[in-house]
Computed example of a mutant assay.
Amino acid sequence: MAKKRRKFTQCPNCGYTFEEANNYCPNCGQENHDLNVPVKHLIAEFFEGTLHFDTKAWRTLKCLILRPGLLTEKFNIGQRASYVPPFRLYVFISLIFFFVLALSKSTVTKQQEGATTLTPFPGVNIGSTAPDSLRNIDVAAVIKDSVAARLLEDSATAKLVNKAAALNTARKENLKWAELEAQVEKFAEGGEASKQKLLKNTSFMMFLLMPFFAYLLYLFYYKKRRNYVEHLMFSIHLHTFYFLLIIAAVVTAFIFPDLDLTGVVIFIMLLYLYFALKQVYKTSYVGTFLKLIPISFTYVLTLTIFLLGTLAISILLS
């Protein structure tokens, strides 16, 4: 749908007199469009410019939700003008996704501080008893006893040194754990700031996850001889649908707090991925299922690693 313009007769920037066909000033390049209008018009133009919020957007969302994989297939074969571009669609939906997450009720469980007791070095009392009399001394026996005593003393000293070194190492490890616990406690007590930082890092993590998942598809379907871009479009559309699904689940959970939708969401995710793989890669039902198992396992493992890494980075940077 063409953009509805409120045209000037003369350029406000350079004074050039417009012709009817001029959408931009031929002299300075400024757009021939009057922005001095009520706010509702600007909001409508924002949605139109960001996502072309018209029949194209509804057609795209309908195809994405109800026909798994079809939107990717149409993009790959060149039927693109009738649908919202994948990156633009992903950015818009992801903004809504993280906005909904930020507004949703989420409780941050504060871990109780574990008492870290640093084991002090035990006291070592080395005493020696001197004889009361030096009379009637057997010189050979004294020499023999003194050598044995020296060996015993050296052995005891070595044991004490080793024990002290081990205790010192344990003390340093305890200090490191104490510092880590302090970082976790600081992050947990950060409240809204920590939450926003985690959401920001998660959004960046998901952006990195998409091309990584596309590479996994490239490996699993290497024999199909598809370009990497085709797998990337599949990954973008898949994660866009997942965002929409989680948004719906979060809103539903907000309305019905006692309703647990975790199992339903996971089932829909797997079902959608199954039909999307079959639609795009043209494999049989059994072949698609056999591919779905390792792809799903690898994806869950990768997602877990990415999430743990994101949480660790958020804590260390707090």
Rank of each mutant, 00 (worst) to 15 (best):
V91Q: 07
L199A: 08
E185M: 06
E230H: 00
F46E: 04
F213K: 00
M1N: 15
K278W: 05
L232I: 01
A158H: 12
Y274M: 12
M233L: 02
L103H: 14
I93C: 14
N168F: 04
Y83V: 01
F256E: 11
K7Y: 00
E173F: 10
K62L: 08
G127S: 15
I247D: 05
F289E: 15
L134G: 03
N168Y: 03
H237W: 14
Y16G: 07
A2S: 13
A149T: 06
L208G: 09
V300N: 11
K200Y: 13
A57F: 12
C11S: 12
K105N: 15
L245D: 00
T302D: 04
F254S: 15
N22T: 12
G78N: 04
L101I: 12
F99H: 01
K4P: 03
V91I: 09
L89G: 07
R80H: 11
Y281E: 02
L70T: 03
W58H: 13
K278Q: 08
Y215A: 08
T9K: 03
Y90E: 07
S104E: 05
V280E: 02
V124R: 14
I247K: 07
Y242A: 03
H52V: 07
N32R: 09
I266Y: 11
R135N: 13
V265C: 01
L152F: 15
Q196Y: 11
A44Q: 02
R226D: 00
V286F: 12
E45Q: 07
I313S: 10
F243P: 10
K223A: 10
G127C: 12
A2P: 11
E153H: 13
V264A: 12
I65Q: 02
N136E: 15
A312K: 10
I65C: 04
D54K: 12
A21C: 08
L42Y: 10
A81D: 14
L51P: 03
L118S: 01
S296Q: 04
E185V: 06
E31H: 01
V229G: 01
F241C: 14
H239T: 09
P68S: 05
F234S: 00
V100D: 02
L219I: 14
H237T: 10
N27D: 15
G309C: 02
Y272F: 15
T55C: 08
A214N: 01
E113K: 11
I247Q: 04
